[in-house]
Computed example of a mutant assay.
Amino acid sequence: MTEQATLHTRLEMIDTLVARLDHLADEEVRDTATELVQLVMELHRTGLERLLKIVTQQIATSEGAILRLAEDQLVAGLLLLHELHPVDLVTRVGRALEQVRPYLKSHGGNVELLEIDEGLVRLQLQGSCHGCPSSAMTLKMAIEEAISEHAPDVLGLEVEGVVPASLPGFIPLESFEHAADAASAMQWEEIAGLHDLADGEVDTRDLHDQSVLFLRLNTGLYAYQNGCSHCGNSLKTGTLSGSVLSCPDCGTQFDVMRAGRCLDLPALHLEPLPLLQSGGKTRIALAVSP
Results as ranks from 00 to 15, higher is better:
residue 139 L to Q: 14
residue 185 A to N: 07
residue 140 K to Y: 04
residue 156 G to D: 14
residue 204 T to V: 15
residue 173 L to I: 04
residue 193 G to F: 12
residue 161 G to C: 11
residue 135 S to E: 03
residue 205 R to L: 14
residue 199 D to P: 06
residue 134 S to D: 00
residue 131 G to V: 11
residue 143 I to T: 04
residue 157 L to H: 05
residue 137 M to E: 12
residue 163 V to F: 08
residue 137 M to Q: 12
residue 201 E to V: 10
residue 154 V to E: 05
residue 188 W to H: 09
residue 198 A to R: 14
residue 155 L to E: 15
residue 151 A to S: 10
residue 175 S to R: 08
residue 152 P to H: 03
residue 172 P to K: 11
residue 203 D to T: 15
residue 204 T to R: 09
residue 134 S to L: 13
residue 142 A to P: 04
residue 183 A to P: 01
residue 139 L to A: 13
residue 192 A to H: 10
residue 143 I to P: 08
residue 133 P to V: 09
residue 154 V to Q: 03
residue 178 H to I: 13
residue 169 G to E: 13
residue 191 I to T: 09
residue 173 L to C: 07
residue 158 E to Y: 02
residue 158 E to I: 10
residue 182 A to G: 03
residue 166 S to H: 10
residue 170 F to P: 01
residue 162 V to H: 13
residue 187 Q to Y: 01
residue 140 K to N: 09
residue 161 G to D: 10
residue 141 M to F: 00
residue 200 G to Y: 00
residue 146 A to W: 09
residue 171 I to P: 02
residue 138 T to V: 09
residue 189 E to I: 01
residue 205 R to F: 09
residue 174 E to N: 09
residue 193 G to K: 12
residue 179 A to R: 00
residue 144 E to H: 03
residue 156 G to T: 05
residue 154 V to K: 01
residue 176 F to H: 09
residue 160 E to N: 07
residue 188 W to F: 10
residue 157 L to W: 03
residue 191 I to C: 04
residue 142 A to M: 03
residue 197 L to Y: 08
residue 147 I to A: 01
residue 159 V to T: 15
residue 204 T to D: 06
residue 167 L to M: 15
residue 200 G to V: 06
residue 171 I to W: 00
residue 172 P to I: 04
residue 207 L to T: 07
residue 194 L to E: 12
residue 171 I to T: 08
residue 156 G to W: 05
residue 202 V to Y: 09
residue 159 V to D: 01
residue 164 P to L: 07
residue 151 A to Y: 02
residue 181 D to F: 02
residue 154 V to D: 05
residue 155 L to R: 14
residue 140 K to P: 01
residue 159 V to S: 07
residue 189 E to W: 01
residue 172 P to S: 08
residue 146 A to K: 08
residue 171 I to D: 00
residue 142 A to Y: 06
residue 164 P to G: 13
residue 135 S to N: 05
residue 173 L to K: 13
residue 163 V to C: 08
residue 187 Q to F: 02
residue 151 A to L: 04
residue 166 S to N: 13
residue 177 E to P: 00
residue 143 I to S: 03
residue 181 D to H: 06
residue 192 A to S: 13
residue 206 D to M: 10
residue 135 S to Q: 11
residue 196 D to S: 12
residue 157 L to M: 13
residue 140 K to D: 08
residue 207 L to D: 06
residue 140 K to A: 14
residue 193 G to M: 12
residue 187 Q to T: 12
residue 176 F to K: 00
residue 176 F to T: 00
residue 194 L to G: 07
residue 197 L to G: 09
residue 168 P to W: 11
residue 181 D to E: 13
residue 131 G to I: 11
residue 158 E to V: 14
residue 148 S to W: 06
residue 156 G to R: 09
residue 133 P to A: 11
residue 199 D to W: 00
residue 147 I to R: 02
residue 180 A to C: 02
residue 144 E to P: 06
residue 148 S to Y: 02
